[in-house]
Amino acid sequence: MHRTGELYGQFQTLEQQKESATLGMWTFLITEILFFGGLFMTYTINRHTYAQVFAFSSRTILLSWGAINTVVLIGSSLTMAMAVWSAQVGKKKLVTIFLILTLVLGTVFLGIKAVEYHDKYVEHHIPGLNFDMYYCTNNPSVCHLDDAALAREKKELKEAEDQSGSQVAVNAHSQLFFSLYFGMTGLHALHMIIGAGLLLWLIVESMKGRFTAQYNTPVENIGLYWHFVDIVWIYLFPLLYLIDRH
């Protein structure tokens, strides 16, 4: 049986029924916030301990892709919010259009993330696979380093080496940075992929005209999830890309 928004026996009013759906979604999102919180703390402690190497590793990530992805993801939050609004005012066609736009922007985000991951593979920055922090200074043409960038990287690597003690230590500590980078952005990307799957389902259902002014709880709750994923990125972007640029 399809739900259409009628009142179920365990609730006294529709308001109560709706509130309990929102409350349940938030409770789930709080468990998500807590486990991402653990990762953010691991990052904070290690960044503090290995400050120089983490700063150098962070600067090898292209800032422009991160910034573009921030704009893309916040844009997708706007289209998601507009999908919820369209459902609330009963504009069924607009719901589908805004959901499709959200899915497209989410896919663009994941595409850019794939390009970034590929860059890291080329630069030998994948922990456990081909990791070598000195690969780019030894093969500047592969990493597209011009003379100025090469001189700067060599100088920064030397400074990091002085602080850490040896090349082995620099590689060990920067591997820690990239493990956290791939762990955190990978977990975030997994949430995006799950979100994209949920959006696909919403799009199919909305094309059948299922979401109305009376019944739009799935759109609202998946919207909450999508905004939560946006918030995680709002913190990942400064911590991984921004704070060591100056």
Partner: peptide
């Protein structure tokens, strides 16, 4: 930014 998203988008 997070507060704006939570208060209004959410």
């Amino acid at each position: 930014k997070a507060i704006l998203v939570i208060l209004f988008f959410m």
